[in-house]
Amino acid sequence: MTDAAGAPRERPLSPHVQVWRWHMTMATSILHRATGVALYGGALILALWAVSLAVGPDCYAGVMGLLGSPLGKLVLFGLTLSVFYHLGNGIRHLVWDTGAGLDVKTANASAIANFAFTIVATLAVWAIAFMTGAV
């Protein structure tokens, strides 16, 4: 791998994240991983809820008090967004696994559809929660 002069030739580098122009499917891929990590925490919160129910009324009231605080509600709202985003995008991935929908136009369209689904489903869930007096 040397040229005629004997000096090592400049090796090609694989493109790193800084040199990519941002595009939709790149953002949806990164968000899929980010929401997955968020839901890791969310699943641990769900486990905490189940354990507190088994421990007793005082413990349960404490955990529900935490979840019902302004910060708790903010976390739960973020987790609702994450749940619907990761769910919708997971379905995109399952469709892609069949070989369908991989062209740029369809992938961009399904990305927009998933963003819309995420926002509408999250707002619907919180609207129902407010209407039924759950929060």
Partner: peptide
């Protein structure tokens, strides 16, 4: 650990252990 704790807790409550 998280999964086992949660599933055990669910079983305990569901089977009347509270």
């Amino acid at each position: 650990l998280g999964g086992a704790l949660a599933v055990f807790s669910i079983l305990k409550v569901a089977l009347g252990g509270v």
